[in-house]
Amino acid sequence: MSVALKDNERLPVEEFTDEVRQQSQQDFEPRIIGLVCNWCSYAGADLAGTSRAQYSPNIRLVRVMCSGAVDPLYILRPIIDGADGVLVGG
């Protein structure tokens, strides 16, 4: 599993939202997209559900058939559109 972009090495894209974010640092709620493999990480997220593990609701999981099927476009698109991070699980 790897986090595509870490805070300190983010791709320089969101020129417009930077300032907004600085203004409201305290109530910052990151929006994260997770691209997860059907066979492992997605199943893992299911298991988190069946075991009622609680985690923060900032992530939206997208099922792919293999983490190898994650086109970099799927990472860049949400980042450019304003996501704060993309997590690829596989």
């Binding site: 791709l11 969101e14 860049l76």
Partner: peptide, 24 residues
């Protein structure tokens, strides 16, 4: 919708995505 999301967007869009994808 994009513009609403971010207050303002550059037009044409996807130029940055294009260059980064070409790098990729």
């Amino acid at each position: 919708k994009w513009a609403e999301q971010k207050s303002v967007i550059e037009m044409p869009t996807d130029t940055f995505l294009f260059h980064i994808t070409r790098v990729n």
